[in-house]
Amino acid sequence: MILINIDSLSTTELQYIAQQEQLDDWKSLDREELIDALEEAFGEQDDEVTSAQKGKVHRNRYCNSLTDYRGDQQKVNDLPGVEQLPENYLDTSIHLLQRDPQWAYAYWSLSTASQLMVFGEDGQQPSTLFLRVQQSNLSDGTVKTFDIEVSVSDHQWNINLPDTGCSYLVDLCWRDKKGNEMSLAQSKSIETYPAYWQEHLDDLIEDRDLYLTHFSALVTKEGDIVDNAVIRDLAQHLSKGVL
């Protein structure tokens, strides 16, 4: 959202948030120390985000902490007859969700029968579980595969998608001690399409009108590019590394 800035908060507000966030020494901290402590408390962020993005994420959180903090007194009760959600479901399946053109997220489960087959009744059978990622080129149909070894306790994995213009699917596979391999489940496929202008960058570089029409809408008046890795790459190429 907008106008979110920790520096704008009063010291009373900062103390209040620090108290809600259970910072031990909030009473003894001065204003600057409170800001530092809160930034640290809220700062355990995904390493993938850039520092500029982190700043935005922090400010969003302060906003929402202030707006939405509900305290511990008011709980929503369960309706009669409900039970806790299972940690996993007892069927053998794998699902693939596309996060962006470079990454997908897979989650899977193993039925009791599959577990018995793979690891034996005592769970000690020496077997290996792995994910086999199948990458099919959408234009020429060539297929490549790569494997990711996972442990029996894993149920999810972030999978890198190395190339665009490909279809990806994942098999949940099992290898026995003799090296025999078998697919237990297969996900549906996801597709990554190459952008036309990624493959025709020279046209954009050479034609100012094309650039104005296609690219300028994605840059603010201050020169900030829309938050997107592919567009940032395009911008790097277009500016020959200046941006």
Partner: peptide, 20 residues
């Protein structure tokens, strides 16, 4: 959303919900 794709709705904090 942040990054321009699905990262906001599919990250370490919320990915657990999709299997359910």
């Amino acid at each position: 959303g942040q990054g321009g794709y699905s990262a906001v709705w599919l990250d370490g904090s919320n990915a657990w919900s999709y299997q359910h």
